[in-house]
């Protein structure tokens, strides 16, 4: 049997981490774009639009991400396409992230005082202009900490894509474990790598939040 040094293990895990990072970025950015569309639907004046966004969000927040991955993987296959794991993973994670980001941002928009809507309306602005020039610039400030915080959920969410066969950090952990028979060390290292990715984001989210609260109190 070949002996694996810690360094061998770590090198293999770190190589796979690139895919965790790439998938996280794609999911977060794609989810942000779809989430923005959801946000506009969710606060639209049209009842049907609000209902669509509401049910979308409830569906994606009310079912396991793992099931969403399975359905993307096998469901897309029904259209006769041979779905590669990365595609199913990307699609599912984007749609899932969008639901959470849309809901987070809705909270931020709703936290803006009603007077801001009224004042801008009384100046003759249309709904999109109100959003663009008055509401979003203010909502974006308070949206930063929870949005950064959610990016941690996205990174952790990518771990599930190993189950449909996408080779990223978690999958690499399993593969390396099967080769080395050192689950304690390997999964310990995998956990530490995730921690190294997530913890700085968690911490900055907390710090940003605290800063925002202080700024708020000084107003």
């Amino acid at each position: 049997m070949i002996e694996f040094t810690i360094w061998d293990i770590l090198r293999n895990l770190l190589l796979a981490t690139r895919w965790t990072i790439a998938l996280s970025l794609v999911s977060f950015i794609g989810g942000g774009l779809v989430g923005l569309a959801l946000l506009f639907l969710r606060i639209s004046r049209r009842k049907w639009a609000r209902a669509v966004a509401k049910y979308y969000i409830e569906l994606f927040q009310g079912t396991p991400l793992l099931m969403q991955l399975f359905i993307a993987f096998f469901g897309l296959g029904l259209f006769g396409i041979d779905v590669p794991a990365w595609l199913a993973a990307g699609v599912a994670l984007i749609l899932w992230s969008a639901a959470f980001l849309g809901e987070i941002w809705r909270g931020c928009v709703e936290a803006i005082a009603k007077g801001q809507w009224e004042a801008s309306a009384s100046l003759g602005m249309g709904r999109l202009q109100q959003m663009r020039y008055v509401i979003l610039p203010q909502a974006m400030r308070i949206a930063v900490p929870p949005t950064v915080g959610f990016s941690v959920q996205v990174i952790k969410g990518t771990a599930l894509t190993s189950i449909i066969g996408f080779v990223e950090l978690s999958k690499a952990g399993t593969v390396v474990t099967n080769a080395t028979f050192q689950p304690f060390t390997v999964y310990g290292l995998v956990a530490l790598i995730y921690f190294a990715l997530c913890w700085p984001l968690s911490k900055s989210s907390q710090i940003l939040e605290r800063k925002l609260n202080v700024a708020h109190r000084n107003h």
Binding site: A113, G115, Q116, E118, A119, S120, A121, S122, L123, G124, G126, R127, V134, P137, Q138, R141, H219
Partner: peptide
């Protein structure tokens, strides 16, 4: 409707008790 409302609001301004300035 949005067009009529806009036309109206161009003619009539409003000042609020809470000022409602845009803080940004």
């Amino acid at each position: 409707d949005e067009a009529h409302l806009k036309a109206l609001r161009l003619k009539v301004g409003m000042i609020f008790q809470q000022f409602n300035l845009f803080p940004h």
